[in-house]
Design a binder for these strands. Structure first.
Length: 491
RNA sequence: GCCCCCAUCGUCUAGUGGACUAGGACACCGCCCUUUCACGGCGGCGGCAGGGGUUCAAAUCCCCUUGGGGGUGCCA
């Protein structure tokens, strides 16, 4: 039950070890974030290892995506695939020699044996065991094959896998930095496969060999790996190796409270989608860091530096966290509002382009500034911008008519027309003045000025500051739109 | 089925036996500000899963129940 471990000075080396078998999703990347934060906090090394031993599904494309997403979030890799380092190679399929070497050692130690069972055979065995209410452990059929039988199987070129010979008994336990002592009974672990018949290592095997040979100090990974850990510990024991520290992270859950996966209901799970939808990497990093961890200060909007400074594995929660899009939206909005004009331009322009909006100079800036206060994503910004750059369209014609038909609204709209007519441009300050003057001169309430003008100019009941909109539209277009409103009133 | 992990507002969380009348954030609702909407400010709604212990004292420690999740692959 000792949660506190001895404090020893260790050179912190952590790894993010994704498999390139699909797009990186929220869960994956949060693991990367925690590893990275820990490395930075402890001034350690953040290593990228690629676990491409699933020959069926691993692709070069997915590998590239891993680089892309890490880069986007600003998780710089110190060592590993694409970064080099003294413990390579860092891609598992390039380490086959190493695994074979340790497989030989295990076999020599009598801790591994060849297995000639076919996948089909194992499958039916498993089903039968399940039906009979037994566990789905491997039967151990090939455990004690006579040398003759082995020779025969090899002669017949029967595909051959290598299994771990589990002769351990009693508790297999390990201290988890986040959860404390976790214990399993060795008897519940079966003779798991080490090397597949295609010559590649399994996850549990490769992981142990790599973590050890790469001198990983802390294995920080998802909670879904807790049940793999005792198997891995058996390997460490068999090889006579010292254990790394383990920290199993709580899972990120989807709306159905299930582990975030590729198919998680309607939820958007791929990190790339969030980039496309106009979320800022800093906001994403900040939000994801808060899923399962919190800063001691209680602050939630934290810079990269603050995140690093406050990070600790001990403050990580034990229970899963549901990914909440609404809070992310709020946080992204906060980050958008923190951007200065230059930053805003850089981030938003691609989203304007996507909407076919090409603007430059002051005009663009007016729009940017107006929208900045209103949106929670850049995509939304593009969509809103499109409302102004396109032709006027009433969101609700009846409602618009109602607004325009109010008493004295015609005077308001006409008064603004008069003020705008003949002008070449309306800077925001001046436009704001016009609106105030009209209210004063006609003696009408603000609501009768701003609402009708807003509907007239934008076709909607809410949106950016009107002075920016006028500046953006320009006097000529504004006058024309006011005219349309007056026509509708007459209708 | 078996193994393992987890359990504070709807959601993210603070809380490590007394400072808890359980604090903050998102969302929601009101009010204020800006002669509009939003932004911002103020306030409200809302929670320790249940039951037993231990203790002078329990959200905090122990046990059971319940609930949720993960694993049970020649996937990782």
């Amino acid at each position: 039950m000792t949660r506190k471990r001895e404090v020893i000075l260790v050179n912190v080396r952590v790894r993010f070890a994704p498999s390139p078998t699909g797009e990186i999703h929220i869960g994956n990347i949060r693991t990367a974030i925690f590893n990275w934060l820990y490395a930075r906090k402890e001034e350690g090394t953040f290593i990228l290892r690629i676990e491409d031993t699933d020959r069926e599904r691993s692709t070069e494309e997915f590998k590239e995506i891993i680089f892309r997403e890490l880069k986007w979030l600003g998780l710089d890799v110190d060592e590993g695939v694409g970064a080099g380092g003294g413990y390579g190679p860092y891609q598992q399929m390039e380490r086959l020699e190493i695994y074979r070497e340790y497989a030989r050692i295990l076999e020599q130690k009598g801790l591994a044996y060849p297995c000639f069972c076919s996948p089909e055979e194992l499958e039916t065995e498993r089903e039968k065991a399940m039906q009979e209410g037994r566990g789905s452990r491997y039967s151990g059929k090939c455990r004690n094959l006579s040398p003759e039988k082995r020779a025969r199987a090899r002669e017949q070129k029967t595909p051959e896998a290598l299994r771990f010979l589990n002769r351990f008994e009693g508790p297999v336990s390990f201290p988890d930095i986040i959860r404390g002592e976790i214990s399993f009974e060795a008897e519940t672990l079966d003779d798991f496969v080490l090397m597949k018949s295609d010559g590649s290592p399994t996850y549990n095997f490769a992981c142990v060999i790599d973590d050890y040979t790469m001198e990983i100090s802390h294995v920080i990974r998802g909670e879904d790996h807790i049940s793999n850990t005792p198997k891995q510990i058996l390997l460490y024991k068999g090889l006579g190796w010292e254990l790394p520290e383990f920290a199993h992270l709580p899972l990120i859950l989807d709306k159905d409270r299930r582990r975030m996966k590729k198919r998680s209901g309607e939820a958007e799970v791929f990190i790339s989608r969030y980039r496309d939808m106009g979320y800022l990497p800093d906001a994403m990093l900040n939000y994801l860091a808060l899923l399962g961890w919190s800063d001691q200060s209680g602050e939630e909007v934290l810079t990269r530096e603050e995140l690093i400074a406050g990070f600790s594995l001990e403050r990580i929660k034990h229970s899963g966290a549901i990914f909440d899009r609404e809070k992310l939206d709020w946080m992204n909005g906060v980050y958008i509002r923190k951007l200065n004009l230059e930053g805003l331009r850089e981030k938003a322009v691609p989203f304007f382009r996507k909407k076919g909006i090409e603007l430059f100079g002051e005009k663009m800036d007016y729009l940017l500034l107006a929208l900045q206060e209103k949106v929670s994503t850049l995509e939304e910004m593009g969509a809103m911008a499109a409302d102004f750059t396109g032709d006027l369209e009433y969101e609700n014609r009846e409602k618009a008519k109602e607004i325009f038909s109010q008493d004295r609204v015609d005077e308001v709209l006409k008064a603004l027309q008069v003020k705008l007519k003949g002008k070449k441009e309306v800077p925001p300050e001046e436009g704001k003045g016009f609106l105030k003057e009209i209210g004063k001169e006609l003696g009408v309430k603000g609501k009768l000025v701003f609402q009708p003008v807003r509907w007239a100019l934008t076709g909607k009941g809410s949106g950016p500051d009107l002075n920016f909109i006028m500046a953006f539209l320009g006097p000529e277009e504004a006058v024309s739109r006011l005219g349309k409103a007056l026509e509708l009133r007459e209708d």
